[in-house]
């Protein structure tokens, strides 16, 4: 049994006493995993992060970080966590000055601070901007500095609230690889994002939140399997035939599949792609319909996310 580093039971929070930002959320985060929090804007992700990082006191429920109560032992908890918040946070100094000041704040001795600063500047490609003032650099560069700066101190959990917003593809990948690397060394990461591909790439387990409620929580592969079948077939037919072909296809594929259409495009979620493909080809031949495009792919996290949010967390099974 892996130790839980975060335990939340029936967490509720309201900022104004009327609307619930968190509505009975329960979950655990295990030591050494990357735990993803997915949800639309205003779903409650940042509120959850604020509660876990001791910035807000939940209205009710139980929350334990390393077994400690954040409302009573906040300082002890904060000494063991790292946080990259959604909004920017900078001191009026240079990029490398920001690393130095932050290192001092965390009590890192001078020699070690310099060593870590240089390693982080190197790893996050900040060499060219290290002497620029942090307010003169671009939004993506700022985000990079903010994320990199957090690695200057030791921590047991790192909370990342949409860390890759504004980053280019290469830096995004660098960050995600850095997270994977740190996790191998025992770090636990709680990660919120809108980007489903990066959640798929880096997370071990994912929780989908909507309107303050936890809709689903499972390992990524389990979610993909549970929420839409094992494979997805994308299909496009000639526009003139779509109206008669798609209803016939929906009927003809039978159980174990789910069909959604948009114009002349069809997305089929299926347990048995081989059988579904054979039926599609057979039907198109029989009806004299030309297939413009057909492909088979693994389900993405986007399929999971859209389905869980639109179905309020009710599993679709393979149907």
């Amino acid at each position: 049994m892996v130790d839980p580093v975060v335990q939340a039971v029936d967490l509720r929070h309201s900022y104004d006493g009327k609307r619930s930002a968190l509505d009975g959320v329960s979950f655990t985060v295990r030591k050494g995993e990357v735990f993803g929090l997915l949800g639309k804007n205003g779903a409650g992700k940042s509120t959850l992060i604020k509660a876990m990082t001791t910035l807000i006191r939940p209205s009710s429920g139980t929350l334990r970080i390393f077994g400690m109560d954040p409302t009573k032992e906040g300082k002890k908890i904060r000494a063991r966590i790292g946080v990259v918040q959604q909004g920017e946070s900078f001191d009026f100094t240079t990029v490398e000055g920001n690393f130095d000041v932050y290192g001092v704040l965390w009590g890192i001795p001078r020699g070690e601070r310099q060593r870590r600063r240089e390693a982080l500047i190197q790893r996050f490609g900040l060499e060219d901007i290290r002497r620029q003032r942090s307010f003169d650099i671009s939004g993506g560069q700022k985000r990079r500095v903010q994320v990199a700066r957090e690695f200057i101190h030791d921590m047991d959990i790192l909370f990342l609230d949409e860390p890759t917003v504004g980053m280019d593809v290469i830096m995004r990948r660098t960050l995600l690889d850095s997270i994977r690397e740190e996790v191998k060394g025992g770090l636990t990461v709680v990660f919120t994002t809108h980007n489903l591909e990066e959640a798929d790439y880096v997370c071990d387990r994912i929780a989908v939140i909507d309107e303050g409620k936890l809709l689903v929580l499972d390992e990524v592969e389990n979610l993909k399997r549970l929420y839409g079948g094992k494979k997805t077939i994308d299909l496009t037919v000639d526009i003139g035939s779509a109206a008669r072909f798609i209803p016939a296809l929906t009927q003809g594929l039978g159980p174990g599949t789910s069909v959604t259409t948009e114009g002349d495009s069809v997305v089929i979620l299926t347990d048995d792609p081989k059988d579904s493909l054979a039926k599609i080809l057979e039907l198109s031949q029989k009806m004299g319909v030309q297939l413009e495009w057909i492909s088979v792919r693994k389900n993405t996290l986007e399929d999971v996310f859209l389905r869980s949010v639109s179905h309020g967390g009710e599993p679709l099974g393979s149907a």
């Binding site: 001791t54 300082k75 909004g87 920017e88 946070s89 900078f90 704040l105």
Partner: peptide, 18 residues
């Protein structure tokens, strides 16, 4: 004022300070 405006207050308050 600047620490609130530029996010450093929240950042410091999730650090090892009260």
């Amino acid at each position: 004022w600047a620490d609130r405006r530029w996010g450093m207050l929240a950042q410091l308050l999730v650090g090892p300070f009260t």
